[in-house]
Design a protein around this nucleic acid. Structure first.
Length: 346
DNA sequence: AAAGCGGGGAA
DNA sequence: TTCCCAGCTTT
């Protein structure tokens, strides 16, 4: 049996029962594909269920506030995915008459949908023969064919896409084939695989040449940059504090935070009045030194290492238009700030 | 072509 | 610690 038919057969017999496989509603498939970008199935599954429960249809999603969509995304990371999902839902509802685009060429024009997602949706929902190229496929095919082009290079990825194109052209169900490739990469041909249980081990070039641990090849190695974030958590006598929204093109775009001073190194000394008068509009606030607490935490992202300090400072004056501490859970904070609030502030 | 963008789980 | 996950967008 050919590779492409063998892996589809394996998929039919071994696939996981997952909520987005209950049907092929393009809305649900689309949401699942966006959630699962750079995200493991086990992590994304609960987000998918919560998201679909909150927004059962594309109309309900399109009429929601952006903050409500971000709330469902909180903790999942790469928050532009949520913003793009919201944008695209509005476009489909308001300018495409609510009709989901049903071809690769139309899908790839939408915000947040690239080659992978357009291929996935068009193959699973509309039976188009577009091969997906994700991390699983790159790993599986580069091992099976013994390819040593770096998989993080455009050339290496284009090559594997061409191979995928030939393979998918010979199967009956392109959606099943694409999901089979990813499922096999996720369950069998993993980064540290158990080749004894692999049905392709007798034909896998990497296995035959004992190169499974060196294929796929990756070229890029970038050192994460270090940043020092100092959050000032003002608290007045009425238990109110100041909350801002991140508006710059940076991490945590459109999420909330406390007043921030970013520094080149870790700040040891306590802030003075002049330090934090720069932070807030109502600079009549005065520092009250007693009851001050400092909490430091290291938070690691893929591309940055964050050294975060929270300075909890009581102020004498009342904060105008502040947020009560018991009301903070209505705001979308990044994970390290949520942890601080839950563990130490409330 | 390269950089920027989260968070968590596994080895 | 290091790797990497159903990638996309901007520079």
């Amino acid at each position: 049996m050919s590779f492409e038919n063998q892996i589809v057969k394996w998929y039919i017999n071994n696939k996981r029962e997952l909520p987005w496989r209950e049907n092929i509603d393009p809305y649900r498939v689309w949401i699942s594909e966006i959630i699962l970008q750079q995200t493991r199935v086990v992590q994304g599954e609960k987000y998918f269920n919560n998201f679909i429960k909150k927004f059962p249809s594309i109309e309900s999603l399109s009429s929601a506030d952006e903050s409500e969509v971000l709330k469902m995304w909180k903790g999942l990371g790469y928050y532009n995915r949520a913003i793009n999902i919201h944008k695209t839902s509005k476009k489909i509802t308001n300018t495409l008459n609510g009709i989901f685009p049903n071809t690769y060429n139309e899908l790839i024009k939408l915000n947040g949908i690239g080659d992978y997602t357009a291929s996935a949706i068009s193959s699973i929902c509309f039976h188009e023969y577009n091969p997906v190229v994700d991390g699983n496929v790159l790993r599986l095919l580069s091992r099976y064919y013994g390819l040593k082009n770096p998989i993080d290079s455009l050339k290496g990825q284009r090559n594997i896409r061409e191979i995928g194109k030939k393979l998918i052209s010979k199967v009956d169900n392109p959606g099943d084939f694409n999901q089979a490739m990813m499922e096999y990469g996720a369950l069998v041909c993993t980064p540290f695989p158990d080749c004894k249980s692999c049905i392709f081990s007798s034909k896998c070039i990497a296995h035959i040449n004992n190169e499974v641990d060196t294929i796929p090849v990756k070229s890029k190695k970038k050192k994460p940059k270090e940043r020092f974030l100092n959050y000032i958590v003002f608290i007045d006598s009425k238990q109110k504090t100041i909350v801002n929204k991140r508006i710059n093109k940076d991490i945590w775009y459109k999420l909330n935070e406390f007043p921030l001073i970013e520094s080149k190194t870790e700040i040891k000394n306590i802030f003075t009045n002049s330090d934090f008068k720069k932070l807030v509009d109502n600079s009549h606030l005065t520092l009250k030194k007693e009851n001050e607490k400092i909490y430091r935490v290291k938070h690691v992202l893929s591309h940055q290492i964050l050294y975060i300090s929270f300075y909890q400072i009581n102020v004498k004056d009342l904060i105008t238009s502040g947020v009560h501490l018991s009301n903070l859970n209505n705001y979308n904070f990044p994970v390290p700030i949520t942890n601080f609030i839950n563990k130490l502030l409330i």
